[in-house]
């Protein structure tokens, strides 16, 4: 199975001449999603793995302070989420939002949306 979130190698560069405008736009969206998803998924995956593993690594105190590995990991997750969400929003506004407005203006005679895909 190939997920559409994993573009083939020649699609890595958004402005590659071999790509259609549709796949360029689509790849741009997928890259943005992945840039947001990967750090958060890594943090969450690490936390879930550490929970599932035997032993009590999460309760280990850091440098003899009250802060434990578990607390610092969850704090990191929260900070990573808020930071990447801010970045994701900014980049989406810069790269994807204008695309919709441009197309809407340039596409007065476009094919009705019901004729593509499953939309109705």
């Amino acid at each position: 199975m190939r997920l559409s979130a994993q573009p083939p190698k020649h699609h890595r560069f958004p402005d590659h001449p071999a790509q259609s405008p549709l796949s360029q736009a689509r790849d741009r969206a997928v890259h943005l999603d992945l840039a947001f998803l990967v750090p958060n998924a890594l943090c969450f995956g690490t936390a879930v793995t550490l929970i599932a593993l035997p032993g009590d690594l999460l309760a280990t105190r850091l440098f003899s302070t009250d802060m434990t590995v578990g607390l610092s990991l969850y704090l990191l997750q929260a900070v990573a989420l808020l930071a990447t969400a801010h970045r994701f929003d900014r980049r989406s506004a810069r790269l994807l939002d204008p695309l919709q407005h441009e197309r809407a203006e340039a596409n007065a005679t476009a094919m009705p949306v019901q004729q593509i895909g499953g939309f109705r």
Binding site: L22, S23, R26, A29, R103, G117, F119
Partner: peptide, 15 residues
């Protein structure tokens, strides 16, 4: 359809 869900119906239709 996938493209429309990621970048918008109008953009996908135009493409």
């Amino acid at each position: 359809t996938t493209a429309a869900l990621l970048i918008g119906r109008t953009a996908a239709t135009a493409a």
